[in-house]
């Protein structure tokens, strides 16, 4: 239906002879993908705000309820879990920004022996799935005495190969002249980084930050393995108690809990949508 509307609109705007098939197809495709993406979310909202017997039945005037949210909230200490997740993603993002910025700056603008070998090693990190390293990481965290801390969840991800690569590519596109001008003004290497490179790479930081936060917000296996107590566990671990397949899944509660845990991310995305899309475009176009 929306596809029809879209093509009608296109047809009305231009004379019929110059009907823009390409554009109509694009619009139809975008709508189709958009609706496809949105369907599970609509289902989740429908199920979460209605009593259990309407989970698989559609009735326009079915009674509304918030009971599912209340049940989900009380089934696990979610307040604490939320705090932990926020601390976790903040710690990881801050660490990644500092480390990746410094490393990327070094790889982009300094020549030092072994730099290409080192950079190759960093790129190799992109090929290794973090899950393969779980045992090694566990042993390391144990050696550092960090098992069952939020720091232990985040530490393996702080030196991100992807972040270094992305920022290096961005820094490489910054015109040398800008750096030279700053140097003439008396800026040292750190001053140049802070005053020239970082401000120009803002869209990249924003785009990378979004990817990083959503990834670590959703991460499950590693946090489950390295933590043991309520004080350190993130929301995803709390969410997992609802997926008890032996007993059959209660869709009402699980959708309520899912909306609750993904809610902050969804709201943040809707609020900053324009900035995110623009930053992705700018980061990509450069």
């Amino acid at each position: 239906m929306s596809a029809l509307d879209a093509s009608n609109g296109a047809a009305a705007a231009a004379p019929p002879a110059r009907f823009d098939v390409d554009r109509a197809l694009n619009t139809a495709g975008a709508w189709a993908l958009g609706i496809l993406w949105f369907l599970p979310l609509i289902y989740a909202v429908w199920t979460a705000i209605h009593p259990g017997e309407f989970a698989t039945r559609f009735e326009l005037f079915a009674p509304l309820t918030v009971e599912n949210f209340v049940n989900a909230w009380t089934a696990a200490p979610f307040a604490r879990y939320f705090l932990n997740t926020v601390l976790l993603v903040t710690f990881i993002l801050a660490g990644q920004f500092v480390l990746c910025t410094l490393a990327a700056y070094a790889f982009a603008r300094f020549r030092f022996p072994g730099s290409s070998v080192l950079f190759t090693l960093v790129l190799l990190q992109l090929l290794v799935m973090p899950d393969i390293l779980i045992v090694e990481n566990y042993a390391t965290m144990r050696m550092l005495g960090l098992v069952d801390t939020i720091v232990a969840i985040g530490l393996p991800y702080v030196a991100s190969g992807f972040g270094i690569f992305l920022l290096r590519q961005t820094f490489m596109t910054v015109p040398k002249e800008l750096e030279e001008a700053a140097r003439v003004e008396g800026a040292g290497p750190i001053g140049v980084l802070w005053k020239v490179y970082v401000p120009l790479a803002k869209p990249t930081y924003l785009a990378y930050g979004l990817v990083s936060v959503s990834h670590h917000w959703n991460n499950f296996l590693w946090p489950l393995i390295i933590t043991n107590s309520v004080e350190t566990r993130p929301v995803t671990v709390g969410l997992s108690i609802f997926s008890a397949v032996d007993q059959g899944i209660d869709w009402s509660i699980i959708t309520a809990a899912t909306l609750m845990t993904s809610g902050p991310l969804l709201i943040a995305f809707l609020l900053f949508q324009r900035q995110f899309v623009q930053s992705f475009m700018r980061a990509g176009i450069k």
Binding site: V135, Y138, A244
Partner: peptide, 19 residues
């Protein structure tokens, strides 16, 4: 420790990690 699957993963990881 999560589901049965998660529990065996967590336990084996901890055992191999020495704890």
């Amino acid at each position: 420790a999560g589901s049965y699957q998660d529990t065996i993963t967590k336990t084996l990881t901890a055992a191999r990690g020495g704890e």
